[in-house]
């Protein structure tokens, strides 16, 4: 670290035109992103804030905006959490297989197939979710209802078509798998060879080497991979709108046919026939989603920083 500072100082001592231009360009790009985000935020605020306080008839069953948005927010987070619980361990497992376990001629096709998945349009995920996955899972839901109904998650009655929030979460899990895998894979394979070999030379098993050399090195990358996955899961629109049988309120029941919609899918479903006033309400829910990702990222960043501090100590 110290050497870098010295290098930077020497660089600063002799300012060059090229350096100046390049650093300004880089900074400009950063500021452009801030400006774009600010523009989106301002747009959301201008269009959405009037939607926060409309007469009660704009909010369906609820009497005010918060009553309207609460189940949607719950549904968004529930589906995203299910997706993360399923996808993250799988993604890290696949990433490890590709970067450390499989021989190259196996690893390359696996990585390729996973990347391919990122390209499937969400409409197609939705179609597949309805026609294939939901129907396959439906008997499983009936079984869960009969045998594990004492758990609040499986209280039932089981959905007749399998289009539940659990199915939506699983479709989301498959959708976010590629992005988490791809980034984790890259950071895993960037671990310095010397660290890995040193660990192995000390007699570590492969898993111990990964735990002690690869994971600490890759930590921030792993977290940012998860954050990107979460971002996609929270904002995913069409697949959830198509797969989920929405229309219920807040409930932990994962296998019934009345589920809370997610914010993004609710916007997509209700935007089409919306009158100007109703669209303002929908954009206000978009604003809420925006703020939620803000908070989630804030929390994640805090956790990472705390972790790094502990590591440094």
């Amino acid at each position: 670290m110290a050497t870098t500072v010295v290098a930077e100082e020497t660089a600063r001592a002799k300012p060059r035109v090229g350096d100046l231009v390049f650093s300004r360009l880089a900074m400009g790009a950063g500021i452009a992103i801030l400006a774009a985000l600010a523009a989106v935020f301002i747009f959301l605020a201008i269009e959405g804030v009037p939607g926060l306080a409309k007469p009660a008839e704009f909010y369906g069953d609820a009497s005010n905006f918060w009553g309207y948005v609460a189940p949607l927010l719950f549904g968004t987070i529930l589906a995203a959490v299910i997706a993360l619980i399923v996808a993250v361990p799988l993604a890290w497992g696949i990433a490890l297989v590709v970067s450390h376990y499989a021989p190259k001629r196996v690893a390359t096709p696996i990585a390729y197939v996973i990347d391919l998945l990122a390209a499937v349009p969400s409409v197609v995920f939705g179609l597949w979710g309805i026609t294939v996955l939901a129907r396959q899972l439906q008997p499983g839901y009936v079984w869960l209802d009969e045998n594990m109904g004492w758990l609040p998650f499986f209280a039932g009655p089981a959905s007749g078509t399998g289009r539940t929030i659990l199915t939506a979460g699983l479709v989301l899990a498959i959708m976010i798998l590629p992005i988490i895998t791809a980034i984790s894979r890259e950071v895993f394979s960037q671990t310095p060879r010397l660290h890995e070999e040193a660990a192995l030379a000390l007699g570590a098993t492969r898993w111990e080497m990964i735990r002690m050399a690869v994971f600490p090195y890759a930590r921030s990358g792993m977290v940012s991979a998860v954050m990107l996955g979460l971002g996609r899961a929270l904002g995913e629109t069409m697949a959830v709108a198509m797969v989920l049988s929405a229309g219920g309120g807040i409930s932990l029941n994962l296998i019934s046919s009345s589920n809370p919609a997610s914010i993004a899918s609710n916007i997509a479903s209700n935007y089409k026939e919306g009158t100007p006033g109703k669209i303002q309400v929908l954009i206000a829910t978009g604003l809420v989603l925006f703020l939620v990702t803000f908070l989630v990222n804030f929390a994640a960043r805090w956790i990472v920083q705390r972790g790094e501090r502990r590591l440094a100590r």
């Binding site: 954050m227 971002g231 929270l234 904002g235 978009g286 990702t293 990222n297």
Partner: peptide, 9 residues
């Protein structure tokens, strides 16, 4: 990071 959560719509 916040930007990743912008819904496409």
């Amino acid at each position: 990071d916040v930007m990743t959560g912008i819904p496409s719509i």
